[in-house]
Design a protein around this nucleic acid. Structure first.
Lengths: 219, 219
DNA sequence: TTTGATTCGGGAACAGCGTTCGCGAACACC
DNA sequence: GGTGTTCGCGAACGCTGTTCCCGAATCAAA
């Protein structure tokens, strides 16, 4: 069955040959590799090579590759610097979003993991606790607060992912096709939007999150 | 280089041996496979087998597997039934969200693709055109309208993905660990939230989207 | 100090993957 | 009947996650 998440599977019985590495060493190596060459480069063999060991050895620290991905996520999530909760909730939540975006920009592979695997590790639950603390006096129901947490995470990841993609040539590809679409002439509003003189700058991230959270939780 | 998206690469010169299949036949087979066994089952070999052909043949229709994924997405996006735009913008946008969720529930692999590959195909641009038409008289800037489109898509996908995951045992795994966290006693707000008597039902999807869009675009 | 018990390291192997190569077959046109 | 061009696709390459299994290392008990 093995329905247990990674976090509950630390071994360490004290008997037998001691491990030469630790789970967090493996995680750190995987993160370094992902930072350097992207998520796709994080294969068991490559991570093992990073550590100067064999691929099969990693299975002493982790049951599957996916577990390693969860560990990577939680390790980065540990990087949130959460101030003591207090004061009005909106600035508190926005600070969480701001730091999330920062972490994701530093680790370009993180948005994808946040969006596709939602499991919360120890530091993820710390983050949730912090958000709930910020909202402690807010009259919304528990369901809405959890919803706000989910929306914050998903939206921060999705918007940051767009940002990162647009920085790296994906816009050219997209642009080539959009030009073709505009030329076909059957998308008047799209055409107007894209050729509209000023082409105003995209809204700022924090501003966007602020409006979303206000809509979600009231003001 | 091949920086050109799939949509601009239709061949059909009329000369030489005619193809035995079409791009859309391949796409349909891939979708059927994904519906039945999930995205991971969509390998070139499996899709080819579905069509009774060899894996290498697919490369006559598609340059890489990722192109096939983009085709799958756009094919499903073709399923939106967009009414003539008109009337107030919010109900119009909510109807788009509602249909998006419906499509994603019918094709459980779609949220992941929408979240991780943002390229808009022909039907994706049709959808964008429709959204811009709905917002034609809205005073917001073009940037904000495009932002609203991005947020709608990302949030619909993310929330639907959560829904689908929670239906299938992922909650047990998560629950096991959350229980452990609660037991540790250092997350008072989380504990309160999870044990809080009623444990109100999660907010309804359309209600959530409504509040988000209102926050984003005003009311 | 020897003997188990137990854990770790990791080479080898397996099944599967995306993709490329190259060749024979099938067609359109001259 | 060529000839040019495209299609189908078996075979191969290099990669992947994962499992098996055995030797080595360590601790506890004898």
């Amino acid at each position: 069955m093995e329905a247990v998440p990674v976090w509950l599977r630390e071994r360490r019985t004290g008997v037998g040959r001691p491990a030469e590495r630790s789970r967090s060493e493996v995680t750190t190596a995987a993160i370094a590799l992902a930072d350097r060459e992207g998520l796709a480069a994080v294969s068991m063999r490559r991570v093992a090579a990073e550590l100067g060991t064999g691929a099969a050895s990693l299975y002493r620290y982790v049951d599957r590759r996916d577990d390693l991905l969860d560990l990577m996520t939680d390790e980065v999530v540990a990087g949130y610097q959460l101030p003591a909760p207090g004061g009005p909730w909106l600035p508190g939540l926005l600070e969480v979003c701001r730091q999330g975006r920062e972490l994701m920009r530093r680790h370009g592979w993180l948005p994808e993991l946040v969006l596709t695997r939602s499991a919360l590790g120890p530091h993820g639950t710390d983050l949730l606790e912090h958000v709930l603390a910020l909202l402690a006096e807010h009259p919304a129901s528990v369901g809405r607060k959890l919803e706000a947490f989910a929306v914050m995470n998903a939206l921060t990841a999705a918007l940051t992912l767009n940002e990162l993609n647009n920085d790296s040539g994906a816009l050219q590809r997209q642009g080539a096709y959009l030009a073709h679409t505009v030329a076909a002439g059957r998308h008047p509003h799209l055409t107007a939007a894209l050729t509209g003189g000023s082409l105003e700058p995209a809204p700022q991230f924090e501003d966007t999150m602020s409006r979303v959270l206000t809509g979600l939780l009231g003001d």
